[in-house]
Design a protein around this nucleic acid. Structure first.
Lengths: 201, 201
DNA sequence: TTTTAAAATGAACACGCTGTTGATTACGAG
DNA sequence: CTCGTAATCAACAGCGTGTTCATTTTAAAA
């Protein structure tokens, strides 16, 4: 691949991320991007058909990483791993997933942030649910989601709990390190809202 | 107020909600709205300065209802009320809040839906946190959010748990009745993710 | 180094949506 | 019935879009 292409696409990505930190995706024009990236507007269209293709490109880039890991390297992911210094075990899946996000933090930040794409979050949630379903089937045989509340409500609560942790992480001014987040995810598995509030009823 | 104004604004609202069911807010043009509402494009601008003012108007309408209730009628809201047929008690706050939403279901549906406004959800979350904080202070004196995970993560988890229930409700093809939702909200106070999955570790 | 193919530029185009204007018509409350 | 408010219609400049074509720049191959 031509080196110039790499440069240009990097400039576009940097400009795109910078703009998404300040305004909503739909309010960003191709002109905005190319001005900030110091390239000609026409050049943009040599790389992407429109700004939606740009968004898709980044989203798929991130999704593919996770998707690949979930479908290929899934053996042993739900078993406990080495003891951490604070005495908490961590699943490899959790560690890996948090690691993926940490690797491209700025991109995850804007795509899951206030100016991001709600549909991206939805896609990810579906993937997560599938992965957890599969993981549970493999490790323990007889899991049945509680009948105490409707099953789809239970699933939504579980998945969006994990997303809440990730999104809180991404919104922090001075973000925690990945290990701390993995730790939080492992701990919250056992915490109900009342536990979180510190209420002992 | 002129009757014609009421008609026109009702037509605008109906068109706006209908459009938000099919495409993202930012992709909706004033022309779209006025065409669907069978009014002249110029007429729209006699009522709202732009489509953002329209969005604000509806959001504030909903927020004010809840805000008013939280700040004025808050006495006794966190005490248990009459026993329901299935043996579950419900807080009046929960009942009232779910009731508010049920009253203008279609509007809540689109504003908190996939094509809605993430900032609206954020505003509501802040209000909810404030209300819960106040409520806890009043009813029980010595609540301290768990130190097991960082406090802001705990709060985010609690609040977005409640929002998850509401949003799941709003997305259902054949939505549950309000009582069922209030019931779910009361029950999930005690349920951790592992409880929800039916795992007994 | 020179050649050559790919990549980026700059200017122009029609199109669609915006928000505003001013003149005109429709209509409902009194 | 009448008067004032509300809605309509046509026109306006401004801006972003996506596409074009000729031109210039640039990196890699000869």
């Amino acid at each position: 691949m031509h080196q110039k292409v790499v440069e240009t696409e990097a400039a576009i990505q940097a400009a795109f991320i910078a703009l998404l930190q300040t305004k909503a995706f739909e309010k960003i024009s191709v002109s905005d991007i190319t001005k900030l990236a110091h390239i000609n507007r026409g050049t943009f269209y040599l790389h992407y058909v429109d700004k939606y293709a740009l968004l898709d490109h980044y989203e798929n880039h991130l999704i593919d990483q996770i998707q690949d890991y979930f479908t290929n390297d899934f053996e042993g992911t739900m078993t406990y791993q080495s003891v951490k210094e604070n005495g908490v075990y961590t699943y490899p899946v959790v560690q890996k997933t948090v690691g993926f996000i940490h690797q491209e933090f700025a991109l995850w930040q804007v795509l899951l942030g206030l100016n991001g794409d709600p549909r991206f979050e939805l896609k990810l949630k579906r993937i997560m649910k599938q992965a957890i379903s599969n993981g549970l089937d493999r490790v323990k045989g007889d899991i049945s989601v509680t009948r105490c509340i409707p099953e789809d409500y239970a699933w939504e609560l579980i998945i969006s709990g994990m997303f809440t942790i990730i999104k809180t992480w991404l919104r922090e001014d001075d973000p925690q390190n990945p290990e701390a987040i993995a730790d939080i995810m492992m701990k919250t598995r056992f915490l109900s809202p009342y536990d979180l509030l510190g209420i002992k009823d």
